[in-house]
């Protein structure tokens, strides 16, 4: 423990004297990863980055317990790497560069300290171990940021997909249309239903036309979901009209003993719209010439 503290104290003392020089030497490492081919940073930003890093590591080494990875000084370093990872990802860089930069930074830091102090740190196991442990944790912070960002992107893509797979349109005041295309599985039906019911509540829609022209097959579970969706629409006080049922689907519904007696069905979307307009007392006609 005493030895640990001595290591950190010695490094801290060295840092406080040599900050300026070390920062200059570390700029090279940053340039290699962020300026060379990728051009993710300019020289000025690299200088700021290196100087900020050196200040933060000097702050950690001069802290009360430089070995504690829960100290505010270490959290500041973690935040520095997380912020850097986020910035690089947003600029089109990849996480590998940031991780490699962090690894190289560790060696460059030891090299720079050796050069400036004349002490062979590479011979000191305790110093190497100290930096290795801290940098491992900092690399973890980079990965956490990367994974968090990836998760956010996936969530955003998922939300977009959900939005586009349920294109609920208000085709007339109080009339919604919902063309269902592709396979209807249980989870998708739930999403469609949620979106549809929220839309009815928001727009105060009085009729909903659900078009199944794009649905090629249906199973027992899905047909029950469909009936459930119709029931939920009706419970909210709207009229539900199902259109475009393929003969194969009609046959499947009958063989599955699905009761469609309480459901209004029409052959095509246009017939469904006519029915919805009729119920709402809307009259659409050709313009008289």
């Amino acid at each position: 423990m005493v030895q640990k503290k001595e290591v950190a104290e010695k490094l801290g003392a060295l840092f406080s004297l040599k900050v300026g020089n070390i920062s200059g030497q570390l700029e090279e490492t940053a340039r290699e990863f962020f300026c060379a081919d990728s051009k993710l940073m300019d020289d000025e930003e690299v200088a700021d980055l290196s100087s900020e890093f050196v200040n933060l590591i000097a702050g950690l080494l001069s802290s009360k317990d430089p070995h504690r990875r829960t100290s505010p000084q270490f959290h500041a370093l973690e935040a520095f790497f997380s912020g850097l990872a986020l910035r690089m990802l947003m600029r089109g860089g990849n996480v590998d560069d940031v991780v490699r930069y962090a690894q190289k930074l560790q060696y460059s830091l030891i090299d720079a300290l050796e050069k400036d102090s004349g002490i062979a740190f590479t011979q000191s196991r305790s110093v190497l171990l100290y930096f290795a442990q801290h940098f491992d944790e900092l690399i973890m912070a980079v990965f956490r940021t990367y994974l968090g960002e990836r998760e956010n992107t996936l969530k955003a893509q998922e939300a977009e997909l959900r939005e586009t797979s349920t294109p609920i349109t208000e085709i007339w005041d109080g009339v919604l249309t919902l063309p269902i295309i592709g396979t209807l599985d249980s989870s998708r039906t739930m999403l469609v239903m949620e979106a549809l019911l929220n839309r009815i509540a928001r727009d105060h829609a009085r009729a909903v036309v659900m078009d199944l022209t794009g649905v090629k097959n249906i199973d027992s579970q899905v047909s029950h979901h469909l009936i459930q969706m119709v029931r939920a629409v009706q419970l909210m006080g709207s009229d539900a009209i199902i259109t475009g049922i393929h003969p194969e689907i009609a046959r499947a519904l009958v063989s599955l003993n699905i009761d469609l007696s309480g459901v209004t069905t029409r052959a095509s979307l246009s017939d469904g719209l006519k029915e919805a307009f009729l119920r709402l007392g809307i009259h659409v006609s050709h313009k008289e010439s």
């Binding site: 239903m193 949620e194 019911l197 929220n198 009815i200 509540a201 459930q228 969706m229 029931r231 939920a232 629409v233 419970l235 909210m236 006080g237």
Partner: peptide, 17 residues
């Protein structure tokens, strides 16, 4: 006549009706 049924209520009710 029940009016102003919330979407969440319609969803849960349709499940066991």
């Amino acid at each position: 006549t029940c009016i102003n049924m919330q979407s969440t209520a319609a969803f849960t009710l349709s499940k066991f009706l």
